[in-house]
Amino acid sequence: MSRTVYVNGDYLPEEDAKISVFDRGFLFADGVYEVTSVLGGKILDFDGHTVRLERSLKELGMGMPLSRDELLAIHRKLVADNGIDDGLVYLQITRGAADRDFAYPDPDTPQSVVLFTQSKPGLAESPMAKEGMKIISIPDERWGRRDIKTVQLLYPSMGKMMAKAAGAHDAWMTEDGHVTEGTSNNAYIVKGNTIVTRHLGNEILHGITRAAVLRFAREAQMQVEERAFTLDEAAEADEAFITSASTFVMPVVELDGAPIGTGRPGPVAARLREIYLDESRKAAI
């Protein structure tokens, strides 16, 4: 059955959805995106994603083409029309279509706005939450402004393929001997009662799930250190995990072929996943 997608003001069957070959998202990866999770037909962390979307656009010299309420209405219609119970809503905004030129087009050029859904039944009941992820480390060879959620995702895609070739689930990227983040997630280690994750800066994406999880951790009286950590620290950690909008809190049990801690998901990750899902469901809209 064909999905309904949103393209520049129109709701269309996916096979009829078209974007210009001159769109700068296609030619230059000149655009940003957000992914929101849907559980029980409701959208998680919508306001956080909207605030980050506006920031990403501003950093690239673009404005918000739609208001918060207009975006929410589109999300809700797509969720309803496509019968999404558990899944994802993908949103992409580019600088629009113009003849190919490295210089930006006229500021009045209409931006391109695309949204579509992905059905993911049982999204919150992933078996991996009980088994844990295997991670490899790779050098971080992305551009310097990783805090902007742009659509230029080729190297993260390459990283996931490197992990797959190594028999792992994902990769953590490293720079100057320290872990920056995963290919599509923020990275954490746990030592004792202390959670360590890289501080915010241009080097990593300012994760919406990251912010919520750290808030819940502090409310649960867990210690949090926001600083860079090394691969050696990760190898000696009691446990590790990642966070993202689509995986929530997911334990990491192996790094570069060696077990982390007991080699099984640890209690901190399990507890934070439980808290995050409970609280996010309560706040979903």
Results as ranks from 00 to 15, higher is better:
Y33Q: 09
E34S: 05
V35P: 06
V35S: 09
V35G: 10
V35T: 13
T36K: 07
T36L: 15
S37M: 05
V38Q: 02
V38S: 06
L39G: 07
L39H: 14
G40N: 10
G40L: 09
G41E: 04
G41V: 01
G41F: 07
K42W: 05
K42H: 12
K42D: 05
I43F: 02
I43W: 00
L44K: 06
L44R: 02
G48E: 02
H49A: 05
H49D: 04
T50R: 08
T50S: 12
T50P: 05
T50I: 14
V51M: 10
R52D: 02
R52Q: 03
R52H: 07
L53H: 00
L53N: 00
E54K: 15
E54T: 14
E54Q: 15
E54M: 12
R55H: 14
R55T: 06
R55S: 07
R55C: 00
S56F: 03
K58L: 14
K58G: 15
K58V: 10
E59A: 12
L60D: 10
G61H: 14
G63R: 09
G63A: 10
M64A: 13
M64T: 09
P65T: 01
P65V: 00
L66K: 12
R68C: 06
R68L: 01
R68I: 05
D69G: 03
E70P: 05
L71M: 15
L71T: 11
L71A: 11
L72F: 15
L72A: 12
